[in-house]
Simulated scan of single mutants.
Amino acid sequence: MQLIGLTGGIASGKSTVARRLAERGAVAVDADQIAREVVEPGTPALAEIAQTFGDGVLNADGSLNRAALGAIVFSDESSRLRLNAITHPAVLRRSTERFEEARRANPDAVIVYDVPLLVETANAYPFDLIVVAHADAETRIRRLVELRGMAADEATRRIRSQASDEERLAVADVVIDTDGSLEHTLEQADALWERLTTA
């Protein structure tokens, strides 16, 4: 089994790389999906979030009101750190379960863990390789505005709330340049797959 950590800032093209590797045969595990699962109604993490941030972060049906929570944590660093202290350990546990399921199904599996906050989390995953999808901040802001309809100031705030490009690049074993065309990004993902499966 190989465990590949794939990270990149918001709107960096990381999900495009993850999809391509999955098309080639990798087992894709999505940290964002797991992060949603661990805060579903009835989970210990959601109960702790409500206790920490108040019932205003819950919808009427008891589910997490992501917009209300986001408004708190993206504007206040200490709140963001408190949220991370609740969710990151829960994500680590669930992710590790997924990796083990994939390993049991195929001991030779290449698992690609799509994890936006790899640098920001204190979780120590046993990665064999860390891949960073990298596009400059101006490109990512433009993508957030044009493709996701986000206001430019909100896009900038989201980018600044994450690790810096320098911090991400410092942990990279492989950098996939996603500033250019989609075809160029996919070519680099294909080359990475060849490296992973022919070594």
Rank of each mutant, 00 (worst) to 15 (best):
S79L: 06
R80H: 02
R80A: 02
L81D: 13
R82T: 13
R82M: 11
R82N: 11
R82V: 06
R82G: 07
R82D: 10
L83H: 12
L83V: 12
N84D: 07
I86C: 01
I86N: 04
I86E: 04
T87G: 03
T87L: 08
T87F: 06
H88K: 09
H88L: 05
H88W: 05
P89D: 07
A90E: 10
A90D: 04
V91T: 04
V91A: 05
V91Y: 02
V91P: 01
V91S: 09
L92Y: 13
L92D: 09
L92R: 15
R93E: 11
R94S: 05
R94H: 10
S95Q: 01
E97C: 05
E97V: 10
R98L: 08
R98V: 03
R98C: 06
R98P: 00
F99C: 04
F99E: 06
E100R: 13
E100Q: 14
E101H: 15
E101A: 15
A102L: 12
A102E: 06
A102I: 05
R103S: 08
R103L: 11
R103Q: 09
R104K: 15
R104E: 07
R104L: 12
R104M: 09
R104Q: 14
A105T: 01
A105F: 01
A105Y: 00
A105P: 01
A105N: 06
P107V: 15
D108F: 05
A109I: 05
A109N: 06
V110P: 05
V110D: 00
V110T: 14
V110Y: 03
I111R: 04
I111W: 05
I111Q: 10
V112S: 07
V112G: 10
Y113P: 03
Y113M: 08
Y113T: 04
D114Y: 13
D114Q: 10
V115Y: 09
V115L: 13
P116Q: 07
P116W: 03
L117H: 08
L117Y: 12
L118A: 07
V119K: 09
V119E: 09
V119F: 07
E120G: 01
E120Y: 03
T121V: 11
T121I: 02
T121A: 12
A122Y: 08
N123P: 02
N123A: 15
N123M: 11
A124S: 09
Y125M: 13
P126N: 06
P126L: 10
P126A: 12
P126E: 04
F127W: 14
F127A: 09
F127V: 11
F127Q: 04
D128T: 04
L129T: 13
L129F: 01
L129H: 02
I130N: 00
I130C: 01
I130F: 06
I130P: 00
V131W: 12
V132H: 11
V132A: 07
V132D: 02
A133C: 11
A133W: 00
A133P: 00
A133F: 01
A133K: 00
